[in-house]
Every structure is written in structure tokens, then in C-alpha cells.
Design a protein around this nucleic acid. Structure first.
Lengths: 228, 228
DNA sequence: ACAGAAAATGCTGCATACAGAATACAAAAG
DNA sequence: CTTTTGTATTCTGTATGCAGCATTTTCTGT
């Protein structure tokens, strides 16, 4: 995990137009992951020369990616001293969760109206898969599917701006949730809340879904507060 | 307004440490303004060579600024075809206003608790000045102070993440509000709503402030819907 | 005259090179 | 021994150059 893997040309997928993703996007998501997974801990100075050499790219696209991340709020730009990975205080985390809660409550209400049956079925599929991972004790995959479900609900609201803001906050919080080691009983509680969530969504019960989502994030703060 | 002014070194402010703003920040805000004020209408391709020459900077810092704006959602990046100014549909605008409304309702509640008397007095000062501009018929300054007041309330919530998200949405919406030509009766209504806002804030009446802010944005949509 | 292909143009994407600022280190003075 | 100052190194900030891709124009064949 702490080893920095250089960027290789991904093996081109099957047939069809080979959509060579621009290096910019690759770099952005790669750096994001490095920050989230702790390869670049908060407070780390992002050395353009060194980092670029490790990743096998020159400074120019790297700098562009760093600036991009800056406006996402993951790194901070210090004039003539480069960029450092942003450090979030406990209050910052709680503030972000407060906003996220408000956004998800709204998303829940809208999703109950806007989502198609097929879309809800997709979320159900994610949910079932997540429960399977929980039962298997696969925390990593559980974590990813968990995020996917929340992202999906934000998207199902049909409100692109809402989904955007949600994604941005979720990204900033990813690292916190990543390091938050919940005990088994807390984990079980979280799964139970998700059961209620999917039930409310399938019933298209706006009030209930909104309430469950809100409660879920209130609890989420209690679950991660010690990790911050 | 349609003339592109090149970037000059700002006259250094008075005494004290001369905080030479980095070119990056200057470029970002300059480009932002050009988009908001319509010098670069939606759909315009951002020509790196040409634009850089007009602004008097080389392509590299310009590219960094453009990428930055992309993650702010003002421009869109098309692989190997550069960047174009993003075009917002009527639905997009309404969606953004919906989210903004939710955020401001939250900000209002929090601000009533977190703000100091001095801070509230500052908002009052902004408000009074804005009313004066309204009476003078100075639409431009009114517009700016209006934005400032909403930004101030978001900041007074004491929640940095909330203020961030609010600022981002506000930025994306600036252009729309800028071109929205409201009639005199609508303008008067907006001012009246602001009167209620500042009164509720000074009374620290959470429920009322939240309600007024929400209503204000519902009305805002009605005021700009035709302009989109 | 028209359709298709090939060449030419212009732009983006990336790398490299150069200049200026900040920091670290070392030497000298108090 | 401490402090200060000068120097050297390192890193950021900006410019420029080159290669690849997209689009447009021109040429050729029917």
C-alpha cells in the first residue's frame, strides 16, 4: 500500500473505439487514491520533481492535476512553496458530515419521485451484494459498495448539481472513512440502517428514506469521531 | 465589457508585507469573470494560444487555470479538443437553485446560533448599503452586495464545508443571475425579502430565517426562469 | 461536377529548459 | 557559544519546443 506504483498504459479493453483516457484524468484519480489511501498523508508536501519521476510523467501534467485537486479541496496551494495535502480537523469532518446529511436527505426525497423502477433495482443489487460482503467479512469491498450506494442515491435524485456536491464531499471524506475502524457491533448497526434505507427506497417513502439517511449520517459521525 | 484587458501587475497595496498574488490565482479569477460577464459565452472553445496571447501569459499557467476551472464546473474538458465554456440548461439552473436553497436553509439555522453580534452587524451594514444602492437604481452594485450577503450568511454558519459548497454553486449561478433582467416590481419584492432576512438574523430566529431564505430562492427561480 | 482520398493546417498534450524565490547550510563576527 | 550573514542548493513558476490527433482543404478519379 505504501509503495508507489508507476502509471502504466492500461491494457486496452476489448473491441470498439479505444477511448485512450487523457493522462490528466488518470493522474487526478491516481493522486486522489494516493491521498485517500494514505500514501500521501495530510501535511505532506507534493514534490513535483520527485513525484513526477516516481509516476513516470513530467511536471507539466502533474502540476495541472495538482491544481485540479486543489479546487476539489484535497490539497492546499501555498504560493511559491507548492502544494501540501490538506489536513482535516475533527470539526471539519463533522461539518462536512452535517452538509452531507442535509444533501442526502434532499437526495432521498427527490430520488423517491424521480427514480425509475429499474434504477431502484440496481441499488437493491448493490445493497444485496454489500450485505454478502458484510457476511463474508470483506471490509474493503463492503466499504466500496457502501459508497456506491450513497452515490447512486444522490444520482437517482435526477439533480446533477446535487450529485456533484455530494460526490465532492464524499471524496473529501473518503480518507476519514477509510481509516475509521469500526467495531463489529457498529458495523452491524450500519448494515441494519442500510436495510431500512433500501426498504424505504423501494416503498418510495420519501419521509422515511430521508429520515433514515439523516440518522445514518448522524450515526456515521459517532462511528468515525474517534478515528479523527 | 467585451474588450479583453491584459493582466497588469496590480499596484502594490500600502505598507506591510506585499503579498504578490501568484499568477495562477489572478488567471483563475480573471477567466472566471470573463465567463460570468459573458466575454466568453457558453459553448466557446478556450483557445490556449490565442487566449494566452491576449492575456499576455504563456500557455502553461493558462492551462493550469483552465483545468482548475473545470473542476469548479465552469468549463468542460474534451480530450484532445481542449476546453469549452459549459452551457447550463434551465433544468440545470433549477437544480442548482434547489441545492442552494437547501444549503442556505441550513446555513441560516446555524448562523443564528454561531454568529457573533459583531458579525451580524457587518451583515446589517452590507444590507443597508445594498438598500441604498437599490434606491439609487445602481443595479450592478446591488447585485454584488446581494451576493456578498448570501455569502456572508453561509460563512457565518461557522461551517467551512457549507461555505465552500455554497460558494461553488453561487459561482456557477453568477452568470445566470448576471443576465437575469428583473423588472422593477420583482426587484422590489427581492429587497422586501432581504428586509425580512436581516430582521430574522438579528432576532436570531432560526426557523424564520431559514424559511425566508428558502422562500427567497424559490422566488429567485421565478425571477430568472425566463432569462434561461 | 461530384465523391472520396490525401495532404496540409492548427490545435492540444506532454516534455524540457530556464529564471526566480525560498530554504538550508556554513562561515565569520560578537 | 550564539547569532548573523552570505552562499549554495533545491524547488517552484513560467516559457518554449516538439509530436500526435482532428479538422479542413485540396487534389484526383470517375
Amino acid at each position: 500500500m505504501n509503495e508507489i506504483k508507476s502509471l502504466e498504459q492500461r491494457p486496452l479493453g476489448g473491441p470498439g473505439p479505444i477511448r485512450r483516457t487523457a493522462l490528466h484524468d488518470t493522474l487526478v484519480s491516481h493522486l486522489r487514491d494516493m491521498i485517500i489511501e494514505g500514501d500521501l498523508p495530510p501535511g505532506t508536501r507534493l514534490h513535483e520533481g520527485q513525484l513526477g519521476e516516481q509516476l513516470g510523467v513530467s511536471r507539466t501534467p502533474l502540476r495541472e492535476a495538482i491544481k485540479y485537486l486543489a479546487s476539489e479541496g484535497l490539497v492546499e496551494l501555498v504560493p511559491s512553496r507548492g502544494a501540501v495535502v490538506k489536513r482535516f480537523s475533527a470539526k471539519d469532518v463533522r461539518d462536512m458530515l452535517t452538509v452531507l446529511q442535509t444533501l442526502e436527505e434532499l437526495a432521498g426525497r427527490l430520488a423517491c419521485e424521480a427514480a425509475t423502477d429499474a434504477e431502484i433495482a440496481e441499488v437493491r443489487a448493490l445493497h444485496d451484494e454489500m450485505v454478502r460482503r458484510y457476511e463474508a467479512g470483506d471490509r474493503m469491498q463492503y466499504y466500496k459498495l457502501n459508497q456506491d450506494i450513497h452515490t447512486a442515491i444522490a444520482r437517482l435524485s435526477g439533480n446533477a448539481a446535487l450529485a456533484d456536491m455530494h460526490a465532492m464531499l464524499q471524496t473529501r471524506l473518503k480518507r476519514i472513512r477509510f481509516i475509521g475502524h469500526e467495531g463489529p457491533e457498529k458495523w452491524a448497526a450500519a448494515v441494519a440502517e442500510h436495510q431500512e434505507m433500501i426498504a424505504a427506497l423501494e416503498a418510495r417513502d420519501k419521509a422515511r428514506l430521508s429520515e433514515v439517511l439523516g440518522l445514518h449520517l448522524t450515526k456515521a459521525w459517532e462511528r468515525v469521531r474517534d478515528a479523527v
